[in-house]
């Protein structure tokens, strides 16, 4: 297949599946909280709806930075789709993409001049401490498999079995990372309702739809990387089932936990990372 068609197809699939998964997450959360909840395609419908809504660009915003930062989010997650499903390239690149996602959270918040955005901006800097688990996961995967390239990691798993069984604590740390990126999670301090919508507050209308588009792709890619790196060798149906299971599990946790305050959120993630790193090193040595 033509490479461009391959990329376009993967971007479209990641957007559609990611949106439906985020909608499924809301549905499961609602049902646990004993209310009907929105339809599963709600996130997808909202994304389309926002493209038709009126947007005013605030007078205080830093132009064209305020609009361009939303475009950067889409750029990095399209790059993630290329690195992941299309070329199965380096995991280190994925770390760089995750770091730039933090940057976008930081600057989408501060670019509008709104105090809610500013608070979210500062919280995004604190929550960068939650990248320590990702750093540790990458090192542990490298120590175990001897490579950072996704296609080689899949080959390793075909020979030696799933990494989920041999380095379970690394999988746990990556799962905590997925949890921190999910909506309504205990670690979602940058989008907490105590600061209205955090860094997304002043990006409304079209720009909100654009951010939701990129976030759907981000959710899909996070789950795809988890399944590829820790289970590996799945066919599309396997990926779909895996993603639905992880989304439902994340929804269970999000429905039953409150949002932690910023210091507690960061310290919880760092503590889990510490347990994961020490445990993994011990497991690797024995």
């Amino acid at each position: 297949m033509n490479l461009m068609a391959n990329i376009l197809l993967n971007v479209i699939i990641s957007f559609l599946v990611g949106s439906v998964l985020l909608g499924l997450q809301r549905k499961v959360m609602a049902r646990i909280q004993m209310r009907p909840g929105p339809p599963i395609i709600q996130h997808l419908l909202h994304t389309f709806k926002f493209f038709l809504k009126e947007s005013a660009f605030p007078k205080t915003a830093a132009m064209p930075f305020y609009i361009a930062i939303t475009a950067m989010l889409c750029v990095i997650w399209v790059a993630a789709v290329i690195v992941g499903p299309v070329t199965e390239g380096s995991l280190l690149l994925f770390f760089a993409i995750y770091a730039i996602h933090k940057i976008v959270e930081h600057n989408a918040g501060s670019s509008s001049g709104s105090p809610y955005g500013k608070l979210s901006c500062v919280r995004a800097v604190f929550s960068a401490a939650a990248e320590v688990p990702l750093f540790a996961v990458l090192i542990i995967i490298y120590l175990k498999t001897g490579t950072m390239i996704l296609s080689n990691i899949v080959t390793y798993q075909n020979q030696h079995g799933a990494l989920l069984l041999s380095i379970p604590l690394a999988a746990l740390m990556f799962f905590v990372l997925i949890l921190s990126k999910s909506p309504y999670s205990p670690f979602a301090i940058t989008k907490g309702k105590d600061i209205v919508s955090g860094y997304e507050t002043e990006h409304f209308g079209l720009l909100r739809g654009y951010l939701m588009f990129s976030e759907s792709i981000a959710w899909y890619m996070l789950l795809w990387i988890f399944l590829t790196v820790f289970i590996g060798g799945l066919n599309p149906v396997g990926y779909l089932i895996g993603m639905v299971v992880i989304t439902a599990f994340v929804a269970f946790i999000n429905a039953l936990t409150p949002i932690l305050n910023p210091n507690h959120s960061v310290m919880t993630q760092v503590t889990l990372a510490f347990i994961g790193i020490v445990g993994s090193v011990i497991l690797l040595l024995y």
Binding site: M4, I7, L8, V11, A71, V75, V78, A79, I82, F213
Partner: peptide
């Protein structure tokens, strides 16, 4: 694809 897919949207 990295530059023009986001710009088109």
């Amino acid at each position: 694809s990295i530059v023009f897919i986001p710009l088109s949207i």
